[in-house]
Measured scan of single mutants.
Amino acid sequence: MGKSNSKLKPEVVEELTRKTYFTEKEVQQWYKGFIKDCPSGQLDAAGFQKIYKQFFPFGDPTKFATFVFNVFDENKDGRIEFSEFIQALSVTSRGTLDEKLRWAFKLYDLDNDGYITRNEMLDIVDAIYQMVGNTVELPEEENTPEKRVDRIFAMMDKNADGKLTLQEFQEGSKADPSIVQALSLYDGLV
């Protein structure tokens, strides 16, 4: 993909415009910024974590950033290329609610087996709590990752089998306004 070129080839721009919710001009602008920050044309896990640390200076986002990195890194080569970056950004910032929920499901399904187990969710929720640090005051019933996961599973795990399917996750998330709101945070920002 033209590693350190400051412009993408027209056919690449066209393809990314088809695969995302961005215009050709927006794709070019994002590429310019991506190459400025990642001259090699790729972003590794350490660089990704560094970006998260800028956004969450009062907590430790390392663990959460690693989980997000793994979802962005579609081809699992340990690096995020621009096409992976822009497609994930498109879903998280401008995707439909169902697209965002499928993306979030992939984030929580750490072993990619098609289910979110209690332990997988606990890993992610714990990482989120570490990331936000003491900057967020949580209600008593959610002031630990374990309590939050218990509440989520009580609401979403309809067949009580200890794991969530994509359908259970989507339906449960849509029924909880706070989850829908959290997924909409990026709307309109890009």
Rank of each mutant, 00 (worst) to 15 (best):
G2E: 01
R151I: 02
G188W: 07
F72Y: 03
R79F: 15
I152C: 14
R18E: 02
Y186S: 10
S83E: 04
K53F: 10
R118E: 10
Q54F: 09
Q49F: 11
D44L: 00
T23G: 10
G33Y: 10
P10Q: 05
V149F: 08
Y31A: 15
R102K: 13
Y115S: 11
E81W: 01
D161T: 14
F153E: 03
A160M: 06
V91R: 14
T135H: 08
A88T: 11
L185Y: 05
K32Q: 14
F67I: 09
F55V: 01
F34L: 12
G172R: 11
L8H: 03
N159V: 13
G188P: 00
G33N: 13
K50L: 05
V190I: 15
D176R: 04
T92I: 06
K158P: 04
E142V: 11
L89G: 03
D126L: 06
K53H: 00
V132I: 04
R18D: 01
Y186H: 05
E14P: 15
A46T: 09
N5I: 15
K158H: 06
S4L: 01
I152N: 06
P139C: 05
F85T: 02
E24Y: 14
K100E: 09
A45V: 09
G133H: 15
E142T: 00
Q54M: 07
E146R: 13
S6W: 14
D113C: 13
I51M: 06
Q167H: 03
R118W: 12
Y31E: 15
D60H: 09
W30Q: 00
N134S: 10
T165A: 10
E140Y: 02
D157F: 12
Q54R: 04
K7R: 03
L43M: 06
R79H: 10
V91E: 13
E15A: 09
K19E: 14
G188Y: 13
D123N: 10
I179F: 11
K19F: 14
K106P: 03
P39C: 03
V190D: 07
F72C: 09
E142S: 09
K50M: 07
S4Q: 01
L164H: 04
K19L: 10
T165D: 13
V27N: 13
T20A: 14
I86A: 11
N112H: 11
Y115H: 05
S90N: 13
Q87G: 13
G133F: 08
L16F: 08
W30T: 02
D44K: 04
K63Y: 01
G2V: 03
L122M: 14
A127S: 06
Q170P: 07
Q29E: 10
V13L: 11
F69G: 14
N159P: 14
R151E: 14
P10G: 10
Y21V: 07
Y21S: 15
V180M: 12
D176W: 12
R94C: 09
K32H: 12
D37F: 09
Y31F: 11
N119L: 01
I116E: 09
V27L: 07
K7F: 04
Q181F: 08
I152D: 05
S184M: 05
K158S: 00
F69V: 12
F82K: 09
M155Q: 00
F48I: 12
L185C: 03
E81H: 08
G162S: 01
S184L: 02
I51Y: 02
D113R: 11
L101M: 00
L16P: 15
F56M: 08
L110R: 00
T135Y: 10
F72R: 11
E26C: 15
E146P: 04
G188H: 07
T96V: 03
P139S: 12
L110D: 11
I86F: 14
Q181P: 07
D123E: 11
R151T: 00
K76I: 12
D150N: 11
E120G: 08
G2M: 06
G47D: 15
I116T: 06
E99R: 09
A46F: 01
V190L: 11
E120S: 10
K19S: 02
A45W: 07
T96E: 09
Q181N: 11
F85P: 02
R18W: 14
F67S: 09
Q87L: 06
K19G: 07
F153V: 07
V136I: 10
T62S: 09
V71D: 06
L183S: 08
G95K: 01
K76Q: 01
E15Q: 03
E99I: 15
E137C: 07
N119M: 01
E26L: 14
Q167C: 00
C38E: 04
Y21H: 12
K50P: 01
V91P: 15
F153C: 04
G47F: 05
A127M: 03
L183G: 11
K174G: 13
M156G: 09
R18C: 13
N159G: 06
F85N: 03
E74D: 14
K50S: 02
T20F: 13
K163N: 10
S178P: 13
P177L: 08
G114S: 08
G188N: 03
I152R: 05
E26A: 15
S83F: 08
N75Y: 13
T135F: 14
V27K: 15
D161I: 02
G114F: 07
Y115K: 05
E81N: 12
T23C: 02
D44H: 06
N119H: 11
R94W: 15
I51A: 09
K3P: 07
D109F: 03
D176Q: 15
M121G: 02
F82S: 14
D126H: 07
A160I: 01
Q49W: 06
A154R: 04
G59Q: 00
D109M: 00
L101E: 01
T92R: 00
N159M: 09
N119D: 05
M156E: 07
E81T: 11
F105D: 01
V91D: 06
A154Q: 14
F56I: 00
T92K: 15
R151C: 03
N134D: 05
Q181A: 15
G2S: 03
Q87Y: 06
L97I: 03
L107P: 02
V13D: 12
F56G: 02
R148H: 04
A88G: 08
F82G: 00
D187E: 10
V13F: 05
D60V: 06
N143A: 14
N5E: 12
D44C: 08
T117V: 13
R18V: 13
K3C: 15
N112A: 10
L138K: 02
K106W: 05
Y52I: 08
E137M: 08
V12L: 14
R102V: 00
A65Q: 12
D98P: 09
M131S: 11
A104C: 02
T66S: 08
G33L: 04
Q49H: 07
K25L: 11
N5T: 15
D37V: 11
Q170S: 08
T62D: 07
T135I: 08
M131W: 01
T23L: 06
M131P: 03
S178D: 14
E137A: 04
R118L: 11
